[in-house]
Design a protein around this nucleic acid. Structure first.
Lengths: 254, 254
DNA sequence: CGAAACTTTGAGCGCATTCAACGCCAGTGG
DNA sequence: CCACTGGCGTTGAATGCGCTCAAAGTTTCG
């Protein structure tokens, strides 16, 4: 539960009762291995879920056999919390790593939203953020060069992880495959490999099998022209000096 | 008001009282000339608005001076209906043609949504559609070839117009500039001109100054592999035979 | 140890870009 | 009524980014 509550708390102010209500509603927790579909495009939605640990992605398969990744879900992120209106899922969701997942019936969400204005606002906010991220990706894929585009995605992911207190200083590591990043950035595997090599040579990242690390997020953000405003995080609205100097963190002036 | 009500009615069933409530809430109607910003990125949101007539677009300016169009707003579409949670707009909205606009205070929207479940559902649905469209564009810009990508955008726009009973058979015409389409598809003006020339030579479109016409939407949809499912229109869930044979319309089996 | 998944490297090609110039049309003002 | 101006569209040539195809290296896992 923790990262989810932390995420909702970023914007709305959840009081003791709100948290209690959330904890009461969200009980059904399970572990899922990597590479499993949580939602399959075209199927009837079964219920919402929340990622408590691990990485997942929202994706679509394209006619030519490829895959297009539309969003990453990190701990705290909900998945299809509002899809009860739909007859069929319009995209799939799959785990990228082992995940801990909470399943939530739609009814529970509706009741929470109806009874608790704070939670209602927080859920809305997270929908707006999802949209904003999608917009930013659209801009990126259309306009940015491949290297900045990839760097931008990394910056965004790390910033989102930081917002829920994950991916801390010592371990700015993402468990992503090159193929996954390629499907995100709209690049071929081959070219993505070269792009990563460039970033590595520039000292902006280090990468290994299924993992990418960022030694100095500030520099990467500079390189990518990453401006976190669109994530609508409260921190992004403070001055960047303030943001860069939170205790126990390296500079992340973006 | 009409196209907005027609749009909401696509999914939710609005009864007489719902419509009356909408008409009561939405009064402040004005005309706006082409090329005006309705919303400016970074400014505090002043209130929501609804496009009653004309075309508008949501866009972002990119650092290098370019513009990236994130969505088109056609009659019936709302604009920032749910942005009251935000401190600052994260994208701009501008008119592309002369428009008739209804301004709606956020309070009115909240009250409508709270008091009238049908309207609540309809508003939610339109948010989901906006997200779905954005997803489809993301896939398109990353994966489709330039010509199919442009064709796909045209198909989508015309399908959306048809859904609110505009852009009928005799006048499948879009008042779009090449520069606008280029900023949408993530292509250069020059290349977009060539792409349009190809589509013209293939007999799929005709184009003039600030306008593009589609003589046979069915053929264009075929060419673009356009499948309207993601628009979540009720018609899309009927069999395509049924859809193609509505009275007074040319075949639009997509 | 072998197989599968992931990553890297090289070579050649093609799509889309940039730069530049020109044509065309609409509106404006003399 | 005509010339001018600016927005829009077209065309050509040269460049380059990212793709495809192909093969080999590397790590993990059964």
């Amino acid at each position: 539960m923790d990262p989810f509550i932390r995420k909702l708390s970023l914007r709305a102010h959840l009081d003791r009762d709100d948290v209690a209500a959330l904890e009461r509603a969200i009980r059904d927790i399970s572990r899922v291995e990597a590479g499993r579909d949580l939602v399959t495009e075209g199927s009837a939605p079964g219920g919402a879920c929340i990622i408590l640990d691990g990485f997942a992605c929202r994706y679509k398969l394209v006619p030519d056999g490829g895959r297009s990744i539309l969003a990453y879900l990190v701990p705290g992120d909900g998945c299809d919390l509002h899809a009860s209106l739909l007859n069929r899922a319009i995209n799939s969701v799959a785990t990228l790593t082992h995940c801990t997942i909470a399943s939530v019936p739609y009814r529970a969400i509706k009741e929470l939203a109806a009874a608790r204005p704070n939670i209602y606002r927080a859920l809305w906010w997270s929908v707006l953020v999802d949209g904003a991220v999608l917009q930013e990706w659209l801009v990126g894929i259309g306009r940015r060069s491949a290297d900045k585009q990839v760097a931008h995605i990394l910056c965004e992911l790390l910033t989102r992880l930081r917002a829920v207190d994950l991916g801390t200083e010592a371990d700015y590591r993402l468990p992503l495959t090159q193929a996954e990043l390629a499907d995100t950035a709209g690049l071929s595997n081959v070219h993505l490999s070269r792009v990563l090599a460039d970033l590595r040579n520039a000292g902006l990242i280090t990468s290994g099998r299924k993992s990418i690390s960022v030694p100095d997020l500030g520099r990467l953000c500079d390189f990518a022209d990453f401006k976190p405003d669109y994530l609508l995080l409260p921190a992004a609205e403070k001055s960047s000096e303030e943001l860069g100097r939170l205790p126990g963190m390296t500079k992340i002036v973006c």
